[in-house]
């Protein structure tokens, strides 16, 4: 056996000097090792990626759907209606005559007359203020004309029409009926909120899946962690491979999620196109796009890193040399 120590000067060697190059090298090595370990267990890895992918794909797909829906909604021609509140003292007959004159205009498709009593009933049922109105002595509402503009009337012409009508002596006030737009906007906002809520839950699920993957990885490498700690490995050194495992799993999951969204998009695009064709729209469906794919992948990576950091803080400390 060779027990000569010629090469080594003394035991009093140079202290460790952290070098950037060495640090970078260890990072690269940890990154490569983690990836290799994951590839050595393809089934377990694939299961994790699929679970994370689905958890990310679902909110992403819903979000995409919503983007398309609101884009379509903004392009739909507004079937706007104008309500003309007439002067208090104009009679019902005068109102009918006024309606007939208006109906002859080219920019008006139809005019109907709403008697003040009918208007009150409608108002009461619309607002649910029945009891309040029953207490009223007089009907405070005037007769009302409901004016439907012609289909080809654009926003500017509509405003001009509203101005013209407002200037007429018979008219007390012009009300642009935009309730349906408000309704649509509220609905979209509601659905968006739902998507955000379920998305948050799905992402939480992804974090739990990833954190569990890291926990298993930590368990599998318990001996290694013990030895590293025994011979003076710091937290950073012990933590590094697991952070990379999380990063890779997250990026893989994000990428797979993006692929799922793309697949889903292809799957629904044909029926969606025929639906749009029914509305005679030249609107083109918005896909995820390269930016969307990159964004989802980066998001996956960030979630992976976050989950790994959480799991590592929780579990690595518990593994101490005995």
């Amino acid at each position: 056996m060779n027990t000569k120590l010629s090469a080594q000067k003394t035991g009093l060697g140079l202290g460790p000097r952290p070098q950037l190059a060495a640090w970078v090298h260890h990072h690269r090595q940890a990154a490569a090792d983690s990836l290799q370990k994951m590839l050595m267990e393809p089934i377990a890895t694939l299961l994790t990626l699929v679970a994370v992918g689905i958890a990310l794909a679902l909110p992403a797909a819903l979000w995409l759907l919503l983007d398309n829906a609101s884009a379509v909604a903004s392009r739909v021609e507004a079937p706007t209606r104008l309500s003309l509140l007439l002067d208090d003292d104009s009679s019902f007959e005068a109102a009918e005559r006024f309606a007939d004159t208006l109906a002859t205009r080219v920019d008006i498709a139809a005019v109907s007359v709403l008697h003040r009593d009918e208007a009150l009933v409608l108002f009461a049922t619309d607002t649910g203020l029945d009891s309040l109105l029953q207490g009223l002595q007089d009907n405070p509402l005037p007769h009302t004309l409901l004016v439907t503009p012609a289909v080809d009337v654009g926003t500017e012409q509509l405003e001009a029409l509203a101005d013209f009508l407002g200037g007429r002596p018979e008219v007390d006030e012009v009300v642009l009926d935009t309730r349906w737009i408000a309704r649509l906007d509220t609905t979209i906002a509601l659905v968006r909120q739902l998507v955000v809520g379920t998305g948050a839950l799905m992402i939480l699920g992804a974090i739990l899946i990833l954190a569990n993957t890291i926990r298993l990885a930590i368990e599998a490498r318990r001996d290694e962690i013990v030895v590293i700690k025994l011979i003076g490995g710091g937290d950073g050194f012990a933590r590094r491979p697991f952070l990379y495992t999380g990063l890779w799993a997250g990026i893989g999951g994000g990428l797979l999620g993006a692929l799922l969204v793309l697949g889903l998009f292809l799957f629904v695009s044909a029926p969606a196109r025929s639906l749009l064709a029914l509305y005679d729209s030249d609107f083109t469906l918005q896909g995820l796009g390269l930016v969307g794919v990159i964004r989802l992948t980066l998001m996956g990576g960030a979630i992976g890193l976050l989950s790994a950091a959480q799991a590592v803080t929780l579990h690595l400390r518990r593994i101490e040399p005995r």
């Binding site: 060495a22 590293i228 003076g232």
Partner: peptide, 10 residues
């Protein structure tokens, strides 16, 4: 391993 922990160059 101990050298990697201490950050020695390759």
């Amino acid at each position: 391993l101990p050298l990697e922990i201490s950050g020695f160059s390759q």
